[in-house]
Design a protein around this nucleic acid. Structure first.
Lengths: 247, 247
DNA sequence: AGATTAGTGTCAGTGGCTGACACTTGACGA
DNA sequence: TCGTCAAGTGTCAGCCACTGACACTAATCT
């Protein structure tokens, strides 16, 4: 989104005026205080007035920095999402869709880690993530935001494969399945003790590796492996006809 | 949820008192008026006062029937979800997970249709669904509700297969992938002209049938048709190793 | 008919969020 | 250096979703 450096910019004086710095400081203070309060008292039990008072600005000012109470909760998550999207776009064109997604998500964790740490301590972000997952109102928004990412993702995948997103449903379907697994991963991450970067990566890989098997026929035989899961009309009623006994 | 008939109850006098009937009438009036206003003026531009006034009750009364403005928008959707869950539970035990889900969703549409029509005209419900999909605040809630359904679904699937939902991730993953496709289907339905029951069924089947292929290796070959879509490790990257060149 | 109680209206108050307007304080040219 | 300009902020008034408390009306029960 907003890039730090300007066109004519030598060394690294990212200061660009007192005004700018003050703004940055206020914004960051609001962000940290908000997340701190959210994660300790709970999201609903924290009022915007409280956050504003703690930073010693008016409520009105809070809303000039963040368009809503929700937005501040997702500030850091947004950054991570943007990084991931970039990572997918950077994948070599010869990788298949799911391979590219998979590799991107694995690699992105590092870059994401840095970016986060530059704004809030990693530990605070993890607490925030857990809070989002366990607060219904925020979880709802989180899921909607995720589908927006998935939309962008589908567009990228479609272009890589030379398809039209609105013609061929496969990009969207693949991304939807992938997204489902990623959300599940996120949830498991939130419940875990070990939230280190390697652990996250491993968990991600583990879950993604089971996407294929999970969709294969029956699971009772350890590795029964039937040809077509749903595609080939093996155990499936043909063409949506012949509904077995009505209820 | 609330069942209509009592223990000792002959013919079909579902009246059980004037009070009860009045309540039912008020609730239904609030529901219809709300959906009508939402779909014509938009959700955000409709105030609870407006709804209450139109039914000639106080705002306070509205909130005694519906715990929030959102809830009234999802009343009918809830019913449909409940029907679908029942349909899955009713599937014979010998069907595989995805087959059962697929057959259930196909069959459920009929039963769902009746149930809806008993409360609001089908046409109003369809407009409502479109509104939910196109109103960010409602879409968010819709997605969260969907994941709750998916959770219940995962539990059912796990039990059918004799697995523990918290041990084996496959039920959740399969349901997540399925859910992703269903959400996509819902979205496509909302955008379509033809919203008839057969059309919905066909669309559903079509999308579900592509879940397997979409996850299979590469799509550039028109019908590479790998025997085991994803089950056989054909197009799927091998075991999560070898992340290509680091950034 | 009278006692009971479910259902409702009224009122006052909280919290998220917005528009309008006046004031303070960095930025910048003369 | 000083005044001008405008960005950033505080204050105030107000809308809307939602809630608790309490009094009142009317269906139900005895």
């Amino acid at each position: 989104m907003a890039d730090q450096r300007d066109a004519a910019d030598p060394g690294k004086p990212r200061v660009r005026g007192l005004r700018e710095r003050k703004k940055q400081r206020t914004r960051n203070a609001l962000l940290r205080v908000a997340l701190e309060l959210f994660t300790t008292q709970g999201y609903e039990r924290t009022t915007v007035d409280e956050i504003a008072d703690a930073v010693d600005v008016s409520q009105r000012t809070f809303f000039r920095y963040f368009s809503s109470k929700e937005e501040v909760a997702f500030t850091v998550v947004s950054m991570a999402e943007a990084r991931f999207l970039d990572a997918v776009r950077a994948r070599p064109a010869d990788e298949g869709p799911l391979t590219a997604l998979r590799n991107a998500v694995i690699l992105a964790w590092d870059s994401v880690g840095e970016a986060i740490e530059a704004v809030v301590p990693m530990e605070l972000h993890m607490r925030t993530y857990r809070m989002i997952e366990s607060t219904p109102a925020l979880l709802a928004v989180h899921l909607r935001r995720s589908t927006e990412v998935e939309d962008a993702l589908a567009a990228v995948v479609a272009e890589r494969e030379g398809l039209d997103v609105d013609e061929d449903p496969r990009p969207r379907i693949a991304v939807a399945a992938f997204g489902g697994v990623m959300r599940l991963t996120g949830r498991m991450w939130g419940q875990r003790e070990d939230a280190s970067l390697p652990a996250i990566r491993e968990l991600t890989v583990h879950c993604l590796d089971q996407l294929g098997p999970a969709l294969a026929g029956n699971w009772r035989r350890p590795d029964g492996d039937h040809g077509g899961t749903t595609g080939s009309g093996s155990g499936v009623p043909d063409r949506g006809q012949s509904p077995p006994h009505l209820p």
